[in-house]
Amino acid sequence: MSDSFVISSAVYALGGHDVLPAVRRRTGASFGLFELRRLERTTFDDNQDAARQRHTPVSFRMSRMTGELMAMAGFEPDGYVGADTGIVSGSSYGCAAVFDLHRRLCKGGPRGIDAVRFAQATHSFPISMTAIDHGLKGPAAALVSSDAAGTEALVCALDWLRDGLCTRVVVAAFEDFDTPIAEHVACTMPEGTGSVSEAMVLLLVETAAAAVERRAPVLAEITGLRFHGRRRDRGAQHALCLRLPGAERGPDASIAGADDPGNCLGATDLIKLALLVTGGSPLGPARDRTVAGSNPVVDDMSAAISRAAMPERVG
């Protein structure tokens, strides 16, 4: 990478408040020992503002967390409005609202579909609503991809920064387990066991020059990125090298004491990255790390953080 890029802020939310009911909503069949942890939704459910009415639970959370992310990065409100700020999201399943449209169609036929709900039924709705709420006019895209979707979103952000399409990018990863995703996740768990958590994580990634110019906090410098090729029997991996600043900086209060995130599907990589750069990592205070995410298309390997060697191509 010829330019230097930094992570200057990170926020996340993990499931845990509500556990999926023990029986499926329609069929009455048991989910067995499978546990699915949900994100808290009372803030959304209790908010009757007109502005909230335009949102889905996912877009509402992403928009709110973007405000927090920018405030933590030292921005004044509206200080990041315009074409210099992009947004990209990654998720394994995307938005349940997309699939809920199928359910409504099954239940009510064509009359079950209304224009407002259809407008909300794209996987890019959360990034679009966040862009509208916050005035983000830079590049925007939504990945609904593998369990490495968060890392893939980060790759997009670095592409845009490198190509000069913008100077900062809100990188989001999330999982949303409303019906029918919850039921589908349960089907994919071996013998109905295991635990999966809803999550949302946002990182602000920007050029080092922009961060320095506004004297922003730097959580980590991104020093290298590489896709590792595969030969038939090995999964394609991408590795992200980070340089963390000195030990004097303490963990952010908002995530201090966070548990290991567990399996958050496409959000897992970035949750772990957020933990790492904010000092909440259970892996200790190492200063240089490689965050590696595999491509589960081929190998079904889970994402991992390791003390791996620096990638071959740094810069």
Binding site: S124, A142, S145, F227, R234, V297
Partner: peptide, 28 residues
């Protein structure tokens, strides 16, 4: 059933071992 299933099938069937991504951002 997952959104990236077509991409996964194409990558597996054609033996594509490099970078992978699936996008769903409406008509863009």
């Amino acid at each position: 059933a997952k959104p990236a299933s077509p991409a996964t099938i194409i990558a597996r069937r054609l033996g594509l071992g490099g970078p992978f991504a699936n996008f769903s951002c409406a008509c863009a």
